[in-house]
Nucleic acid binder design. Structure first.
Lengths: 241, 241
DNA sequence: GCAAAAGTGTTGACAGTACACCCATGG
DNA sequence: CCATGGGTGTACTGTCAACACTTTTGC
């Protein structure tokens, strides 16, 4: 096995997770203490990246990073953009951090995002933390921009591909599905109209099973059938904003 | 000025051009003669790429390649995908060609496409040729796939961004615009319905001018106003297939 | 005056939107 | 028995799709 890496190209992974509070991004702490243990020179957040393996595809390199963080080996991965501005790193903090980690400046990075329900992921809570997409902390490098681009791409793809189901647990209720769309798209949908549309889609299959989750009336569960979806030739997806 | 290039990363440019026959791609001849001048070992086509400049952005590197081929310096450029499979080059021809050109194998390439009317471009006809998108010749490397991906991306973006106008001359008729959509999307549109829709768009501005082109009844000319388009906040574009 | 492409309206079907109340259950 | 979220139907409106003839000009 060849573990060599390219010294000038990295992949960055934006990790999206959905829970009942909405859409979240998993970030890694970026700290640097130089003089005083209690007053870090750098104390903010970043997405996780790493150099690409010479002998692997970009997708495999991204998977390695994702699995390293999450322990999860189901890869709902989308490549959305490559950043290659040689002056991407501008701020003193960024340069300082990069130098202190003994890496060459990574001027080029292929960016991916991963989408899954938060519940399926366990992370090292000393280093990583989930942040709501609409309350991101201060971010290093150009990672604000990268996350924004990822979210835009997700919004757009969600309208035409069934990636919303990547964010859902296997069995879900229609209200959960609606909430997923609302969280990603940052809009509100009419519940009755949403149901009408969804129930027409034969690839959303009702189960003879209910979710007696929190309380009150149990709700019917559904699964997404990729088989059926693939057979429905027409481009036929749920939401039209 | 720093002219050094990265030895392991290239950009590839798919050049789309529209004329009255439809959507075309500009390809470069790939030939290699080893033994006999009249029987080339390799004789097919490729898109044009090149290594990226260390001190330029990817976009600038792509522009340099595009301008080198076309002499055109208006860049309607879209980055659509990065390819990084280390075993991208598989066929003997590809390996042979790469070796005989003394370049390292370029396993990673950031792919862009450019869109403009064919008439605005002049190329060296010994090396380059326009091919209709639905009658492409034999292509080297993985360039068939890259062109296909570029076309897919163009189809998709054309539904939601005004890049159709990149393919049009400044002044155009509605029938020309319809033909542009039809060529790119590979569908047919109803002329009356198309006109109705287009005439509602205030960013398509009628001129007091007609085109007395080929013959018969002259047709009214229109221009696309990007200013107006940018001010129309609603996502409001022409075709819904 | 005729060939050729430009241009023009109406109708029916369907999908989207808006909107308010009953239902089933757990506690 | 009541609080809570789950689940349901109708009427209106606007948009899309289908469709055929008249107009203007060059030759």
């Amino acid at each position: 096995m060849d573990f060599r890496k390219r010294d000038n190209v990295s992949v960055d992974c934006v990790i999206f997770g959905l829970n009942d509070l909405g859409l979240n991004v998993l970030l890694r702490k970026r700290t640097l203490n130089m003089f005083d243990e209690n007053y870090p020179v750098i104390d903010d957040w970043m997405i996780t990246g790493g150099r690409v393996f010479i002998s692997k595809t970009l997708e495999e390199s991204a998977n390695v990073i994702f699995e390293g963080i999450t322990g999860y080996n189901e890869f709902n991965r989308t490549q959305f953009r490559t950043y290659g501005n040689p002056t991407r790193l501008k701020s003193d903090k960024d340069l300082l951090w990069v130098r202190s980690h003994g890496v060459k400046t990574q001027s080029m990075t292929i960016a991916y995002y991963f989408a899954q329900p938060i519940e399926s992921i366990i992370v090292d809570e000393d280093q990583f933390k989930w942040f709501s997409i609409d309350a991101l902390p201060e971010l290093g490098f150009d990672h604000s921009k990268i996350i924004k681009d990822a979210h835009e791409d997700l919004k757009q793809k969600i309208m035409v591909e069934p990636i919303i189901f990547d964010l859902m647990p296997n069995k879900f209720t229609l209200n959960e599905l609606q909430f997923a769309f609302e969280s990603v798209l940052e809009i509100e949908l009419d519940n009755r109209n949403f149901r009408k549309k969804v129930l027409k889609k034969i690839y959303i299959v009702p189960l003879n099973e209910t979710k007696k989750g929190t309380a009150k009336k149990p709700s019917k569960l559904y699964v997404f059938s990729r088989d059926v979806y693939d057979k429905v030739s027409e481009k036929d997806f749920i939401v039209n904003v």
